[in-house]
Computed example of a mutant assay.
Amino acid sequence: MTEEAYDRAAELITGADAVLVCAGAGMGVDSGLPDFRGTEGFWRAYPPYERLGLKFEEIADPVHFADDPALAWGFYGHRLGLYRATVPHEGFAVLRSWGARVFTSNVDGQFQKAGFADVAEVHGSIHHAQCVEPCTDEIWECSFDVAVDPVTMRAVGELPSCPNCGGLARPNILMFGDWGWVPHRSQRQLDELTEWRRSHRKLAVVEIGAGTAVPTVRRQAELASAASGALIRINVREPEVRHGPRGVAAGRRAGSTHSLGTTNCVTTAR
């Protein structure tokens, strides 16, 4: 990233009356969390699923809670334990010092752990659960632990249950092909974010670690910054900014292309 781009990003942030952080999986990598980018990346993080031939989008599917709940809870139970044990990196504190509000596709709860009060989790949270059926639209905090066999990645012992009907519980996460997700907790967060955005005309948007494979976060960042044009995109693989006269894109690889206003430039790694 060039000094000019750094200065431009700082100018956008200091000139704004509010900052919105739009974060994807890349935000947690420096905390030691896997980003599951591509099948190979997922299998490096979870070798047992390579042996089973299961891709991320296949294991992150609600059908397993009906067909093989021990397999389903093995995956989500392991992630629940991992996210509970992970300490957010120092970048979270920097963003918090700006008084930033957060929109994220991450379900790991790292922003809340870092002290953020206003977080819109568009895909839900692994720290909350719901009934598999669902028998009710109730959502509750996960106060349970799930024991997982590290070799088979299957849950062992009693599985989490719904306090209402006694049936199987599942994470309150929007999965692939998911018609049973209970969305009202996330929708409330999103509605509050929309109202907050409308009250800030000079909004700077800092998008971090959000790719194009599942473009939810990138679209939100572009939408939120459309009026001000103040978008700072931090992405090591896909840094291009499509719109706006003031966007700044930042990558960290030599030869990556950045958009700085209407001028394209090539920067080298620092």
Score class of each variant (00 low, 15 high):
Pro163Gly: 11
Gln189Trp: 02
Val146Lys: 00
Pro183His: 08
Leu168Glu: 14
Gly28Trp: 15
Ile232Tyr: 09
Ala269His: 13
Ala45Thr: 12
Leu33Trp: 12
Pro245Met: 05
Ser199Gly: 00
Gly251Trp: 04
Arg201Ser: 15
Val236Leu: 13
Leu33Lys: 15
Arg253Asp: 12
Pro47Thr: 15
Ala9Thr: 02
Thr216Met: 01
Lys113Arg: 12
Pro150Ile: 11
Arg101Thr: 13
Pro171Gln: 05
Leu80Ser: 06
Thr216Ser: 09
Ala227Asn: 03
Glu240Pro: 10
Val236Trp: 14
Trp196Leu: 12
Pro34Gly: 12
Arg253Pro: 07
Ile139Trp: 00
Val236Asp: 15
Thr136Tyr: 02
His128Gly: 11
Leu20His: 01
Pro34Trp: 10
Gln130Met: 11
Trp179Ser: 07
Glu158Gly: 13
Val146Ile: 09
Arg253Asn: 09
Arg96Pro: 08
Ile173Met: 06
Leu260Met: 00
Arg185Phe: 06
Val102His: 06
Phe116Ser: 06
Ala23Phe: 15
Asn164Ile: 07
Asp67Arg: 15
Asn172Ile: 07
Ser256Phe: 15
Phe176Lys: 08
Ala269Asp: 12
Trp196Tyr: 13
Phe92Trp: 05
Gly109Ser: 00
Tyr76Val: 09
Cys131Leu: 03
Cys131Gln: 03
Ile232Asp: 01
Arg198Gln: 02
Gly251His: 08
Ala9Cys: 06
Trp196Thr: 01
Phe111Glu: 01
Asp7Phe: 06
